[in-house]
């Protein structure tokens, strides 16, 4: 059986990108540069999608490439699928009035 793998691009990132399909309970090898870590995912997640590698609170910034890619709309646990159901974009939002 092939290993489940994911990539963290920058050490500040709180999400990893999967390069295989995984099931809840699977152990994923997470690579960041030359170092590797293991995370147990708690959702079924598809290739190319992300999961949290750090515990994320509601309202926290989601960091990938060492940059902000959005905000958590609910708390996201380590190993949980991080996508549009719990991340919202902060740009081009004509639907929200600026303070």
């Amino acid at each position: 059986m092939s290993e489940n793998r994911a990539i963290v691009i920058n050490e500040q990132d709180n999400v990893a990108t999967l390069i295989s399909d995984v099931k809840a309970g699977d152990i994923v090898i997470v690579r960041m540069g030359d170092s590797e870590d293991k995370v147990t995912v708690i959702s079924d997640i598809k290739f190319g999608h992300k999961f949290a590698v750090k515990s994320i609170a509601e309202g926290d910034e989601i960091i990938k490439y060492g940059e902000v890619i959005g905000r958590a709309t609910v708390p996201i646990a380590v190993g949980e699928h991080a996508h549009i159901q719990n991340i919202e974009s902060l740009r081009g939002r004509g639907d929200i009035k600026e303070a």
Partner: peptide, 15 residues
């Protein structure tokens, strides 16, 4: 894009 795992325009742009 979303089916492919991209969650926001920021993520898409940074890539």
């Amino acid at each position: 894009n979303i089916a492919g795992g991209l969650s926001s325009i920021e993520e898409k742009s940074l890539g």
